[in-house]
Design a protein around this nucleic acid. Structure first.
Lengths: 233, 233
DNA sequence: TCAAAAGTGTTACAAATACACCCATGT
DNA sequence: ACATGGGTGTATTTGTAACACTTTTGA
Protein backbone atom coordinates (compact mmCIF):
# COMPACT_ATOMS: atom_id res chain seq x y z
CA UNK A 1 0.00 0.00 0.00
CA UNK A 2 1.23 3.46 -0.80
CA UNK A 3 2.44 5.22 2.32
CA UNK A 4 0.04 7.71 3.79
CA UNK A 5 -2.95 5.92 2.33
CA UNK A 6 -5.35 4.03 4.48
CA UNK A 7 -7.44 1.21 3.08
CA UNK A 8 -10.22 3.64 2.50
CA UNK A 9 -8.22 5.57 -0.05
CA UNK A 10 -6.48 2.66 -1.70
CA UNK A 11 -8.15 2.51 -5.08
CA UNK A 12 -6.85 -0.97 -5.69
CA UNK A 13 -8.48 -2.33 -2.58
CA UNK A 14 -11.91 -2.35 -4.03
CA UNK A 15 -13.59 -3.41 -7.25
CA UNK A 16 -14.59 -0.69 -9.67
CA UNK A 17 -16.83 -1.15 -12.64
CA UNK A 18 -16.60 1.24 -15.55
CA UNK A 19 -18.04 1.53 -19.00
CA UNK A 20 -16.15 2.93 -21.94
CA UNK A 21 -17.94 4.04 -25.06
CA UNK A 22 -16.57 3.60 -28.53
CA UNK A 23 -18.63 6.23 -30.29
CA UNK A 24 -18.73 5.90 -34.05
CA UNK A 25 -20.09 8.82 -35.97
CA UNK A 26 -20.76 9.40 -39.62
CA UNK A 27 -21.12 12.56 -41.62
CA UNK A 28 -20.38 13.87 -45.09
CA UNK A 29 -16.72 13.23 -44.68
CA UNK A 30 -16.76 9.76 -43.36
CA UNK A 31 -16.66 7.49 -40.39
CA UNK A 32 -15.21 8.95 -37.21
CA UNK A 33 -14.51 8.16 -33.61
CA UNK A 34 -15.26 10.43 -30.66
CA UNK A 35 -12.28 10.83 -28.33
CA UNK A 36 -11.52 13.08 -25.50
CA UNK A 37 -8.41 14.62 -24.12
CA UNK A 38 -7.90 13.78 -20.48
CA UNK A 39 -7.80 16.83 -18.26
CA UNK A 40 -6.59 15.12 -15.13
CA UNK A 41 -3.71 13.03 -13.99
CA UNK A 42 -2.66 10.40 -14.75
CA UNK A 43 -2.18 10.59 -18.49
CA UNK A 44 -3.24 14.23 -18.57
CA UNK A 45 -3.34 15.42 -22.15
CA UNK A 46 -3.55 11.96 -23.67
CA UNK A 47 -6.45 10.77 -25.78
CA UNK A 48 -8.98 8.45 -24.31
CA UNK A 49 -12.40 6.98 -24.95
CA UNK A 50 -15.26 8.55 -23.13
CA UNK A 51 -16.35 6.58 -20.13
CA UNK A 52 -17.38 6.61 -16.52
CA UNK A 53 -17.56 4.49 -13.45
CA UNK A 54 -20.85 2.69 -13.05
CA UNK A 55 -22.68 3.99 -10.01
CA UNK A 56 -23.80 1.60 -7.28
CA UNK A 57 -27.45 1.93 -8.04
CA UNK A 58 -27.13 2.28 -11.79
CA UNK A 59 -27.54 -0.24 -14.63
CA UNK A 60 -24.44 -0.61 -16.77
CA UNK A 61 -26.47 0.39 -19.83
CA UNK A 62 -27.71 3.49 -18.05
CA UNK A 63 -24.15 4.50 -17.29
CA UNK A 64 -23.40 4.40 -21.02
CA UNK A 65 -26.54 6.38 -21.76
CA UNK A 66 -25.58 8.92 -19.11
CA UNK A 67 -22.11 9.43 -20.56
CA UNK A 68 -23.43 9.75 -24.10
CA UNK A 69 -26.02 12.25 -23.01
CA UNK A 70 -23.48 14.26 -21.02
CA UNK A 71 -21.02 14.53 -23.84
CA UNK A 72 -23.07 14.56 -27.03
CA UNK A 73 -26.38 15.86 -25.71
CA UNK A 74 -28.12 12.93 -27.37
CA UNK A 75 -30.63 10.57 -25.86
CA UNK A 76 -31.86 7.34 -27.44
CA UNK A 77 -28.51 6.60 -28.93
CA UNK A 78 -28.07 3.17 -30.46
CA UNK A 79 -25.44 1.19 -28.64
CA UNK A 80 -24.41 -2.38 -28.11
CA UNK A 81 -22.05 -4.21 -25.82
CA UNK A 82 -18.71 -4.96 -27.33
CA UNK A 83 -16.57 -6.75 -24.79
CA UNK A 84 -15.71 -6.67 -21.12
CA UNK A 85 -12.09 -6.07 -20.21
CA UNK A 86 -11.25 -7.71 -16.94
CA UNK A 87 -7.52 -8.09 -16.52
CA UNK A 88 -6.46 -7.30 -12.95
CA UNK A 89 -3.66 -5.06 -14.20
CA UNK A 90 -5.43 -3.31 -17.04
CA UNK A 91 -5.58 -0.01 -15.19
CA UNK A 92 -2.70 0.75 -12.84
CA UNK A 93 -4.79 3.28 -10.93
CA UNK A 94 -7.82 1.21 -10.03
CA UNK A 95 -8.84 -2.42 -9.89
CA UNK A 96 -11.39 -1.78 -12.53
CA UNK A 97 -13.15 -3.88 -15.08
CA UNK A 98 -14.62 -2.08 -18.02
CA UNK A 99 -17.60 -2.95 -20.13
CA UNK A 100 -16.94 -1.51 -23.57
CA UNK A 101 -19.96 -0.49 -25.58
CA UNK A 102 -20.02 0.87 -29.07
CA UNK A 103 -22.46 3.54 -30.07
CA UNK A 104 -23.53 4.75 -33.49
CA UNK A 105 -24.54 8.34 -34.00
CA UNK A 106 -25.17 10.87 -36.71
CA UNK A 107 -22.50 13.46 -36.20
CA UNK A 108 -24.74 16.25 -37.40
CA UNK A 109 -27.29 15.50 -34.70
CA UNK A 110 -25.02 15.95 -31.74
CA UNK A 111 -24.31 19.05 -29.71
CA UNK A 112 -21.05 20.51 -30.99
CA UNK A 113 -20.65 22.95 -28.15
CA UNK A 114 -21.04 20.32 -25.52
CA UNK A 115 -18.50 18.04 -27.15
CA UNK A 116 -16.05 20.90 -27.39
CA UNK A 117 -16.49 21.87 -23.77
CA UNK A 118 -15.66 18.35 -22.74
CA UNK A 119 -12.41 18.49 -24.62
CA UNK A 120 -13.75 15.87 -26.99
CA UNK A 121 -13.35 15.75 -30.72
CA UNK A 122 -13.95 13.60 -33.75
CA UNK A 123 -11.16 11.64 -35.34
CA UNK A 124 -11.27 10.01 -38.70
CA UNK A 125 -11.35 6.25 -38.29
CA UNK A 126 -8.26 6.00 -40.48
CA UNK A 127 -6.17 8.18 -38.19
CA UNK A 128 -6.93 7.41 -34.58
CA UNK A 129 -4.16 8.57 -32.23
CA UNK A 130 -2.67 6.37 -29.58
CA UNK A 131 -4.96 6.02 -26.60
CA UNK A 132 -4.53 5.47 -22.88
CA UNK A 133 -4.62 2.07 -21.18
CA UNK A 134 -6.14 -0.67 -23.28
CA UNK A 135 -8.35 1.73 -25.23
CA UNK A 136 -6.50 1.03 -28.49
CA UNK A 137 -7.51 -2.57 -28.24
CA UNK A 138 -11.05 -1.60 -27.33
CA UNK A 139 -11.30 0.44 -30.51
CA UNK A 140 -9.88 -2.36 -32.64
CA UNK A 141 -12.25 -4.89 -31.13
CA UNK A 142 -15.26 -2.64 -31.44
CA UNK A 143 -14.48 -1.74 -35.04
CA UNK A 144 -14.18 -5.42 -35.84
CA UNK A 145 -17.53 -5.96 -34.16
CA UNK A 146 -19.06 -3.13 -36.09
CA UNK A 147 -17.84 -4.75 -39.31
CA UNK A 148 -19.24 -8.13 -38.29
CA UNK A 149 -22.47 -6.54 -37.33
CA UNK A 150 -22.76 -4.64 -40.60
CA UNK A 151 -22.34 -7.91 -42.45
CA UNK A 152 -25.22 -9.52 -40.59
CA UNK A 153 -27.63 -6.73 -39.86
CA UNK A 154 -28.38 -3.44 -41.56
CA UNK A 155 -26.90 -0.49 -39.71
CA UNK A 156 -27.40 2.61 -41.84
CA UNK A 157 -30.40 3.76 -39.90
CA UNK A 158 -28.40 4.81 -36.87
CA UNK A 159 -25.71 6.63 -38.79
CA UNK A 160 -27.37 8.29 -41.73
CA UNK A 161 -29.73 11.24 -41.74
CA UNK A 162 -33.39 10.49 -42.26
CA UNK A 163 -33.07 11.10 -45.98
CA UNK A 164 -29.98 9.91 -47.74
CA UNK A 165 -28.78 8.84 -51.15
CA UNK A 166 -27.55 5.44 -52.21
CA UNK A 167 -24.04 6.77 -52.84
CA UNK A 168 -24.01 8.02 -49.24
CA UNK A 169 -25.05 4.62 -47.95
CA UNK A 170 -22.32 3.10 -50.07
CA UNK A 171 -19.76 5.51 -48.59
CA UNK A 172 -20.80 4.39 -45.14
CA UNK A 173 -20.28 0.75 -45.99
CA UNK A 174 -16.98 1.52 -47.68
CA UNK A 175 -15.83 3.29 -44.53
CA UNK A 176 -16.87 0.36 -42.37
CA UNK A 177 -15.39 -2.33 -44.58
CA UNK A 178 -12.46 -0.10 -45.45
CA UNK A 179 -12.54 -0.95 -49.11
CA UNK A 180 -14.16 0.21 -52.31
CA UNK A 181 -17.38 -1.44 -53.36
CA UNK A 182 -18.80 -1.84 -56.84
CA UNK A 183 -21.63 0.65 -57.17
CA UNK A 184 -23.72 -1.55 -59.45
CA UNK A 185 -23.57 -4.56 -57.18
CA UNK A 186 -24.08 -2.42 -54.10
CA UNK A 187 -27.20 -0.79 -55.48
CA UNK A 188 -28.58 -4.13 -56.61
CA UNK A 189 -28.01 -5.62 -53.18
CA UNK A 190 -29.47 -2.87 -51.02
CA UNK A 191 -32.51 -2.51 -53.23
CA UNK A 192 -33.12 -6.25 -53.05
CA UNK A 193 -33.33 -5.99 -49.25
CA UNK A 194 -36.56 -4.00 -49.60
CA UNK A 195 -35.80 -1.64 -46.75
CA UNK A 196 -35.36 1.46 -48.86
CA UNK A 197 -38.15 3.77 -49.88
CA UNK A 198 -37.35 5.95 -52.86
CA UNK A 199 -38.45 9.57 -52.60
CA UNK A 200 -39.18 12.06 -55.36
CA UNK A 201 -36.59 14.57 -54.12
CA UNK A 202 -32.99 14.67 -55.14
CA UNK A 203 -29.93 15.67 -53.23
CA UNK A 204 -27.72 17.96 -55.26
CA UNK A 205 -25.00 18.68 -52.75
CA UNK A 206 -22.52 16.30 -54.22
CA UNK A 207 -23.27 16.27 -57.91
CA UNK A 208 -24.78 18.43 -60.57
CA UNK A 209 -27.13 15.76 -61.70
CA UNK A 210 -28.29 15.02 -58.16
CA UNK A 211 -29.04 11.67 -56.57
CA UNK A 212 -32.41 10.43 -55.48
CA UNK A 213 -33.06 10.53 -51.77
CA UNK A 214 -34.28 7.44 -49.96
CA UNK A 215 -35.46 6.73 -46.49
CA UNK A 216 -35.59 3.51 -44.55
CA UNK A 217 -38.82 1.61 -44.28
CA UNK A 218 -38.74 1.35 -40.52
CA UNK A 219 -40.82 -1.83 -40.24
CA UNK A 220 -38.89 -3.80 -42.79
CA UNK A 221 -35.65 -2.47 -41.34
CA UNK A 222 -36.57 -3.82 -37.91
CA UNK A 223 -37.59 -7.14 -39.38
CA UNK A 224 -34.22 -7.40 -41.10
CA UNK A 225 -32.48 -6.46 -37.85
CA UNK A 226 -34.16 -9.38 -36.19
CA UNK A 227 -33.93 -11.96 -38.93
CA UNK A 228 -30.44 -11.03 -40.04
CA UNK A 229 -28.97 -10.83 -43.50
CA UNK A 230 -25.81 -11.66 -45.23
CA UNK A 231 -24.42 -8.37 -46.42
CA UNK A 232 -21.33 -9.75 -47.97
CA UNK A 233 -20.48 -7.31 -50.70
CA UNK B 1 -30.61 -1.06 4.91
CA UNK B 2 -31.71 -4.22 6.65
CA UNK B 3 -31.90 -3.68 10.40
CA UNK B 4 -29.00 -5.04 12.35
CA UNK B 5 -26.63 -4.66 9.40
CA UNK B 6 -23.87 -2.14 9.36
CA UNK B 7 -22.45 -0.77 6.15
CA UNK B 8 -19.72 -3.30 6.35
CA UNK B 9 -22.15 -6.15 5.99
CA UNK B 10 -24.49 -4.56 3.52
CA UNK B 11 -23.81 -6.49 0.35
CA UNK B 12 -25.55 -3.88 -1.76
CA UNK B 13 -23.25 -1.16 -0.59
CA UNK B 14 -20.39 -2.28 -2.72
CA UNK B 15 -19.80 -3.41 -6.24
CA UNK B 16 -19.29 -7.11 -6.81
CA UNK B 17 -18.04 -8.66 -10.01
CA UNK B 18 -18.87 -12.25 -10.77
CA UNK B 19 -18.46 -14.60 -13.66
CA UNK B 20 -20.98 -17.27 -14.58
CA UNK B 21 -20.04 -20.14 -16.84
CA UNK B 22 -22.38 -21.65 -19.37
CA UNK B 23 -20.68 -25.01 -19.76
CA UNK B 24 -21.69 -26.90 -22.89
CA UNK B 25 -20.67 -30.51 -23.05
CA UNK B 26 -21.06 -33.16 -25.70
CA UNK B 27 -21.02 -36.91 -25.52
CA UNK B 28 -22.60 -39.88 -27.22
CA UNK B 29 -26.03 -38.78 -26.27
CA UNK B 30 -25.93 -35.20 -27.25
CA UNK B 31 -25.34 -31.63 -26.26
CA UNK B 32 -25.69 -30.87 -22.57
CA UNK B 33 -25.40 -28.10 -20.05
CA UNK B 34 -23.63 -28.31 -16.69
CA UNK B 35 -25.78 -26.99 -13.84
CA UNK B 36 -25.49 -27.11 -10.16
CA UNK B 37 -27.95 -27.28 -7.33
CA UNK B 38 -27.46 -24.49 -4.86
CA UNK B 39 -26.68 -25.69 -1.39
CA UNK B 40 -27.09 -22.38 0.39
CA UNK B 41 -29.69 -19.73 0.86
CA UNK B 42 -31.13 -17.92 -0.90
CA UNK B 43 -32.61 -20.16 -3.56
CA UNK B 44 -31.32 -23.27 -1.85
CA UNK B 45 -32.13 -26.33 -3.95
CA UNK B 46 -32.66 -24.37 -7.16
CA UNK B 47 -30.62 -24.93 -10.28
CA UNK B 48 -27.98 -22.42 -11.19
CA UNK B 49 -25.04 -21.93 -13.50
CA UNK B 50 -21.64 -22.42 -12.00
CA UNK B 51 -19.91 -19.19 -11.14
CA UNK B 52 -17.91 -17.22 -8.65
CA UNK B 53 -17.05 -13.76 -7.56
CA UNK B 54 -13.96 -12.38 -9.23
CA UNK B 55 -11.22 -11.84 -6.67
CA UNK B 56 -9.61 -8.45 -6.28
CA UNK B 57 -6.30 -9.48 -7.72
CA UNK B 58 -7.66 -11.91 -10.29
CA UNK B 59 -8.29 -11.57 -14.03
CA UNK B 60 -11.89 -12.20 -15.01
CA UNK B 61 -10.72 -14.97 -17.33
CA UNK B 62 -8.77 -16.58 -14.53
CA UNK B 63 -11.85 -16.61 -12.37
CA UNK B 64 -13.65 -18.61 -15.05
CA UNK B 65 -10.69 -20.94 -15.37
CA UNK B 66 -10.63 -21.40 -11.62
CA UNK B 67 -14.31 -22.29 -11.44
CA UNK B 68 -14.03 -24.73 -14.32
CA UNK B 69 -11.03 -26.41 -12.79
CA UNK B 70 -12.71 -26.63 -9.41
CA UNK B 71 -15.84 -28.24 -10.71
CA UNK B 72 -14.77 -30.30 -13.71
CA UNK B 73 -11.13 -30.92 -12.87
CA UNK B 74 -10.21 -29.67 -16.34
CA UNK B 75 -7.56 -27.11 -17.22
CA UNK B 76 -7.12 -25.51 -20.63
CA UNK B 77 -10.82 -25.45 -21.26
CA UNK B 78 -11.99 -23.52 -24.28
CA UNK B 79 -14.15 -20.61 -23.28
CA UNK B 80 -15.28 -17.32 -24.66
CA UNK B 81 -17.04 -14.28 -23.32
CA UNK B 82 -20.73 -14.21 -23.98
CA UNK B 83 -22.22 -11.08 -22.47
CA UNK B 84 -22.00 -8.95 -19.35
CA UNK B 85 -25.16 -8.60 -17.30
CA UNK B 86 -25.18 -5.31 -15.49
CA UNK B 87 -28.66 -4.41 -14.33
CA UNK B 88 -28.58 -2.90 -10.85
CA UNK B 89 -31.40 -5.17 -9.72
CA UNK B 90 -30.37 -8.40 -11.40
CA UNK B 91 -29.39 -10.02 -8.11
CA UNK B 92 -31.39 -9.01 -5.04
CA UNK B 93 -28.61 -10.17 -2.73
CA UNK B 94 -25.67 -8.25 -4.10
CA UNK B 95 -24.97 -5.31 -6.36
CA UNK B 96 -23.26 -7.59 -8.71
CA UNK B 97 -22.49 -7.51 -12.39
CA UNK B 98 -21.76 -10.80 -14.01
CA UNK B 99 -19.59 -11.59 -16.98
CA UNK B 100 -21.07 -14.68 -18.62
CA UNK B 101 -18.65 -16.95 -20.41
CA UNK B 102 -19.49 -20.08 -22.32
CA UNK B 103 -17.20 -23.06 -22.22
CA UNK B 104 -17.04 -26.13 -24.44
CA UNK B 105 -15.90 -29.44 -23.05
CA UNK B 106 -15.86 -33.14 -23.85
CA UNK B 107 -18.05 -34.68 -21.21
CA UNK B 108 -16.01 -37.85 -21.16
CA UNK B 109 -12.87 -35.92 -20.23
CA UNK B 110 -14.17 -34.35 -17.07
CA UNK B 111 -14.01 -35.62 -13.54
CA UNK B 112 -17.36 -37.22 -12.77
CA UNK B 113 -16.70 -37.54 -9.05
CA UNK B 114 -15.80 -33.92 -8.67
CA UNK B 115 -18.88 -32.77 -10.51
CA UNK B 116 -21.05 -35.00 -8.37
CA UNK B 117 -19.52 -33.75 -5.15
CA UNK B 118 -20.30 -30.21 -6.15
CA UNK B 119 -23.94 -31.11 -6.62
CA UNK B 120 -23.57 -30.45 -10.31
CA UNK B 121 -25.02 -32.46 -13.15
CA UNK B 122 -25.49 -32.52 -16.89
CA UNK B 123 -28.78 -31.58 -18.45
CA UNK B 124 -29.78 -32.20 -22.00
CA UNK B 125 -29.92 -28.92 -23.86
CA UNK B 126 -33.51 -29.62 -24.81
CA UNK B 127 -34.67 -29.93 -21.21
CA UNK B 128 -32.96 -27.28 -19.11
CA UNK B 129 -34.84 -26.62 -15.86
CA UNK B 130 -35.70 -23.17 -14.66
CA UNK B 131 -32.68 -21.41 -13.22
CA UNK B 132 -32.09 -18.78 -10.55
CA UNK B 133 -31.81 -15.04 -11.21
CA UNK B 134 -31.20 -14.17 -14.87
CA UNK B 135 -29.44 -17.44 -15.61
CA UNK B 136 -32.18 -18.59 -17.99
CA UNK B 137 -31.46 -15.62 -20.17
CA UNK B 138 -27.73 -16.22 -19.89
CA UNK B 139 -28.23 -19.72 -21.23
CA UNK B 140 -30.45 -18.54 -24.08
CA UNK B 141 -27.97 -15.83 -25.04
CA UNK B 142 -24.97 -18.14 -24.82
CA UNK B 143 -26.67 -20.86 -26.85
CA UNK B 144 -27.49 -18.29 -29.51
CA UNK B 145 -23.86 -17.19 -29.45
CA UNK B 146 -22.70 -20.76 -29.74
CA UNK B 147 -24.90 -21.17 -32.80
CA UNK B 148 -23.55 -17.97 -34.35
CA UNK B 149 -20.05 -19.07 -33.59
CA UNK B 150 -20.55 -22.49 -35.11
CA UNK B 151 -21.72 -20.83 -38.29
CA UNK B 152 -18.56 -18.75 -38.58
CA UNK B 153 -15.82 -20.87 -37.04
CA UNK B 154 -15.34 -24.59 -36.68
CA UNK B 155 -16.02 -25.81 -33.14
CA UNK B 156 -15.93 -29.60 -33.13
CA UNK B 157 -12.40 -29.74 -31.81
CA UNK B 158 -13.35 -28.64 -28.33
CA UNK B 159 -16.33 -30.95 -28.00
CA UNK B 160 -15.47 -34.17 -29.77
CA UNK B 161 -12.99 -36.85 -28.73
CA UNK B 162 -9.72 -36.95 -30.57
CA UNK B 163 -11.05 -39.50 -33.02
CA UNK B 164 -14.60 -39.19 -34.20
CA UNK B 165 -16.78 -40.11 -37.13
CA UNK B 166 -18.49 -37.79 -39.57
CA UNK B 167 -21.93 -38.88 -38.34
CA UNK B 168 -20.84 -37.87 -34.84
CA UNK B 169 -19.72 -34.47 -36.07
CA UNK B 170 -23.05 -34.13 -37.82
CA UNK B 171 -24.91 -35.01 -34.61
CA UNK B 172 -23.01 -32.24 -32.86
CA UNK B 173 -24.02 -29.69 -35.45
CA UNK B 174 -27.59 -30.93 -35.42
CA UNK B 175 -27.66 -30.48 -31.65
CA UNK B 176 -26.29 -26.97 -31.95
CA UNK B 177 -28.53 -25.86 -34.80
CA UNK B 178 -31.40 -27.88 -33.41
CA UNK B 179 -32.43 -29.26 -36.76
CA UNK B 180 -31.70 -32.19 -39.03
CA UNK B 181 -29.04 -31.75 -41.66
CA UNK B 182 -28.67 -33.53 -44.97
CA UNK B 183 -25.88 -36.06 -44.57
CA UNK B 184 -24.65 -35.78 -48.16
CA UNK B 185 -24.36 -32.03 -48.07
CA UNK B 186 -22.90 -32.06 -44.60
CA UNK B 187 -20.18 -34.50 -45.57
CA UNK B 188 -19.38 -32.58 -48.74
CA UNK B 189 -19.08 -29.36 -46.77
CA UNK B 190 -16.89 -30.53 -43.92
CA UNK B 191 -14.56 -32.41 -46.25
CA UNK B 192 -14.19 -29.32 -48.42
CA UNK B 193 -12.90 -27.41 -45.38
CA UNK B 194 -9.77 -29.55 -45.37
CA UNK B 195 -9.54 -29.82 -41.61
CA UNK B 196 -10.36 -33.51 -41.38
CA UNK B 197 -7.81 -36.26 -41.60
CA UNK B 198 -9.26 -39.65 -42.43
CA UNK B 199 -7.89 -42.58 -40.45
CA UNK B 200 -7.82 -46.24 -41.38
CA UNK B 201 -9.75 -47.30 -38.29
CA UNK B 202 -13.47 -47.59 -38.05
CA UNK B 203 -15.80 -47.02 -35.18
CA UNK B 204 -18.35 -49.80 -34.89
CA UNK B 205 -20.19 -48.71 -31.79
CA UNK B 206 -23.16 -47.33 -33.61
CA UNK B 207 -23.48 -49.45 -36.74
CA UNK B 208 -22.57 -52.86 -38.04
CA UNK B 209 -20.79 -51.56 -41.04
CA UNK B 210 -18.77 -49.12 -38.96
CA UNK B 211 -17.89 -45.52 -39.79
CA UNK B 212 -14.43 -44.24 -40.57
CA UNK B 213 -12.75 -42.30 -37.82
CA UNK B 214 -11.28 -38.89 -38.49
CA UNK B 215 -9.21 -36.48 -36.54
CA UNK B 216 -8.77 -32.76 -36.91
CA UNK B 217 -5.73 -31.37 -38.66
CA UNK B 218 -4.77 -29.00 -35.86
CA UNK B 219 -2.93 -26.46 -38.03
CA UNK B 220 -5.63 -26.13 -40.61
CA UNK B 221 -8.23 -26.04 -37.87
CA UNK B 222 -6.52 -23.09 -36.21
CA UNK B 223 -6.19 -21.31 -39.53
CA UNK B 224 -9.90 -21.74 -40.11
CA UNK B 225 -10.60 -20.44 -36.60
CA UNK B 226 -8.75 -17.30 -37.44
CA UNK B 227 -9.92 -16.75 -40.99
CA UNK B 228 -13.51 -17.77 -40.38
CA UNK B 229 -15.85 -19.73 -42.56
CA UNK B 230 -19.43 -19.73 -43.54
CA UNK B 231 -20.83 -22.93 -42.16
CA UNK B 232 -24.34 -22.33 -43.31
CA UNK B 233 -25.71 -25.78 -43.77
C1' DT C 1 -18.51 21.45 -74.04
C1' DC C 2 -16.68 19.27 -70.46
C1' DA C 3 -16.08 17.53 -65.92
C1' DA C 4 -18.18 14.90 -62.23
C1' DA C 5 -21.09 11.99 -60.11
C1' DA C 6 -25.51 9.03 -60.90
C1' DG C 7 -27.54 5.40 -62.78
C1' DT C 8 -28.17 0.98 -65.40
C1' DG C 9 -27.66 -4.98 -67.30
C1' DT C 10 -25.43 -9.07 -68.51
C1' DT C 11 -22.47 -12.85 -68.15
C1' DA C 12 -19.53 -16.06 -65.67
C1' DC C 13 -18.60 -18.52 -61.68
C1' DA C 14 -19.21 -20.45 -57.07
C1' DA C 15 -21.85 -22.15 -53.52
C1' DA C 16 -26.02 -23.97 -51.49
C1' DT C 17 -29.85 -27.02 -51.89
C1' DA C 18 -32.62 -30.85 -53.01
C1' DC C 19 -32.87 -35.34 -53.75
C1' DA C 20 -32.43 -41.51 -53.85
C1' DC C 21 -29.95 -45.36 -54.03
C1' DC C 22 -26.26 -48.91 -53.00
C1' DC C 23 -22.91 -50.75 -49.40
C1' DA C 24 -21.21 -53.41 -45.51
C1' DT C 25 -22.06 -56.08 -41.73
C1' DG C 26 -23.91 -58.39 -37.49
C1' DT C 27 -27.75 -60.81 -36.10
C1' DA D 1 -32.15 -62.39 -45.61
C1' DC D 2 -32.90 -58.37 -43.50
C1' DA D 3 -32.40 -54.36 -40.73
C1' DT D 4 -29.37 -50.61 -39.66
C1' DG D 5 -26.64 -46.91 -40.25
C1' DG D 6 -22.65 -45.42 -43.67
C1' DG D 7 -21.44 -43.68 -47.78
C1' DT D 8 -21.78 -41.61 -52.57
C1' DG D 9 -23.22 -38.12 -57.17
C1' DT D 10 -25.89 -35.01 -59.91
C1' DA D 11 -28.96 -31.38 -61.38
C1' DT D 12 -31.00 -26.99 -60.03
C1' DT D 13 -31.12 -22.79 -58.04
C1' DT D 14 -29.27 -18.90 -55.86
C1' DG D 15 -26.15 -15.57 -55.01
C1' DT D 16 -21.76 -13.20 -55.78
C1' DA D 17 -18.32 -11.03 -58.72
C1' DA D 18 -16.62 -8.87 -62.61
C1' DC D 19 -17.18 -5.62 -65.83
C1' DA D 20 -18.25 -0.35 -69.19
C1' DC D 21 -21.03 2.79 -70.92
C1' DT D 22 -24.84 6.48 -70.96
C1' DT D 23 -27.24 10.27 -68.46
C1' DT D 24 -27.72 14.75 -66.35
C1' DT D 25 -26.48 19.25 -65.40
C1' DG D 26 -23.88 23.26 -63.46
C1' DA D 27 -19.98 25.80 -64.39
Amino acid sequence: MKSGYTDQYNTRNKMYVATDCIVFGFDEDGLKLLLFKRKVKPDEGKWSLIGSFVELEEDVDDAARRVLKEITGLEDVFFEQSYTYGKAERDPGYRCISIAQFALIRINDHDRELVKNYGASWHNIESVPQLVLDHDRMVRDAFQKLRDRARRRPIGFELLPEKFTIPQLQQLYEAIYQRKLDSRNFRKKVISLKVLEKLEEKDKTSSKRGAYLYKFDHDNYLKLQESGINFEI
